[in-house]
């Protein structure tokens, strides 16, 4: 594989459209529990694809399969012509698949240090040349640092570039993860709940960043998110999982009206008491999650989750006026 562009003339690999990411009949079993049951979907080149579903539906498991942390019992994941299943995580990263985590996982040090970890696969300097500070290693590091700074600017972290991550606010740290993933110059970006736990302003800002990087870097995005407002605003396509199975698929509007989706999120109308009891047989965590989503979904008509704050409403309006971004 050739060395990808590192200096900031053109950000990333703009011209070449990313290859499609195809998930084919992926099944994952954990000791009797089927976490994913023959799930298939395709992330079209350059699109934002959302993966939604109640807690425990298998979204994070799916991400772990995509990034090589889990091996599926059967099925395949393909990026263009390359098979991702069976490859070690670092090899998948080298193919241009980057991800963020649901709970923030950053490294001790400054924002710059973290972003430079993202440049790892794109740089070469080994132990010997770094220890001896050979000109090649020094030059490479400088070029990558310049690019990391550009990405920090793109994601609104430029002012905090040299700040230790530990001192940043929650929203900023979440954005550091996003920026670090972008530092891999990925062709496919996997975002696991990028706005979870953020306040309205932070959400709007992150949504803006995702929109910008998609437009400027031309990458495909696979998004797991509970914030339906964000999903409806950003996604071109939505796949809905429940109990590890794909229950619906389509554009945000189609999915919103899909009867299976309404049932999974809101429960079956008319049989409230028994309907509430069915998930109770499952794990308690799942039950709580389902109820939580149900309550939020009901108040906001399934369009925005987690409270209709001023920002939330603004976000919704923005979605309507903007239509499809890009």
């Amino acid at each position: 594989m050739s060395l990808r562009p590192t200096t900031g003339t053109t950000p990333g690999r703009l011209p070449a459209a990313p290859p499609p990411l195809r998930v084919r009949d992926v099944t994952v079993r954990f000791a009797g529990l089927t976490a994913l049951d023959e799930v298939s979907f395709t992330v079209a080149p350059g699109s934002v694809h959302a993966l939604i579903g109640p807690n425990g539906a298998g979204k994070s498991t799916c991400f772990n399969v995509l990034s090589g942390l889990y091996r599926p019992s059967s099925g395949q994941v393909l990026l263009g012509d390359e098979t991702l299943t069976g490859r070690a995580p670092h090899r998948i990263a080298a193919l241009g698949v980057a991800r963020t985590f649901q709970n923030i996982v950053t490294t001790e040090g400054t924002v710059a240090d973290n972003l430079m970890v993202g440049r790892h696969v794109l740089s070469r300097a080994g132990f010997a040349s770094t220890a001896l500070r050979l000109p090649r290693a020094v030059r490479e590091q400088r070029a990558h640092l310049a690019r990391a700074r550009e990405i920090a600017e793109l994601t609104g972290l430029a002012a905090r570039f040299d700040t230790p991550v530990a001192l940043l606010s929650y929203g900023d740290r979440k954005r550091v993860e996003l920026a670090r993933a972008l530092c891999l110059e990925p062709r496919v970006l996997l975002l696991d709940e990028p706005v979870a736990g953020m306040n309205g302003a932070e959400r709007a800002r992150t949504a803006e960043v995702i929109d910008t990087v998609r437009a400027e870097l031309g990458l495909s995005v696979l998004l797991v998110e509970h914030d339906m407002g964000l999903v409806m605003r950003l996604a071109d396509e939505v796949t809905v999982l429940d109990f590890g199975r794909r229950i619906a698929h389509g554009t945000p509007d189609e999915v919103r009206r899909h009867p299976e989706v309404l049932r999974a999120y809101l429960g079956t109308p008319g049989e409230d008491a028994p309907g509430e009891d069915v998930p109770g047989e499952d794990t308690p965590a799942r039950d709580a999650g389902t109820r939580g989503t149900t309550a939020q979904g009901t108040t906001a008509q399934g369009t925005t989750a987690q409270g209709t704050t001023a920002q939330g409403t603004a976000l919704e309006e923005a979605t309507d006026s903007e239509g499809d971004p890009v």
């Binding site: 942390l69 990263a93 980057a98 985590f101 001790e108 970890v117 790892h120 696969v121 891999l184």
Partner: peptide
């Protein structure tokens, strides 16, 4: 700091 995160970053 995190083996998983490092692996996913390509280490």
């Amino acid at each position: 700091d995190s083996e998983t995160a490092a692996a996913v970053m390509g280490v």
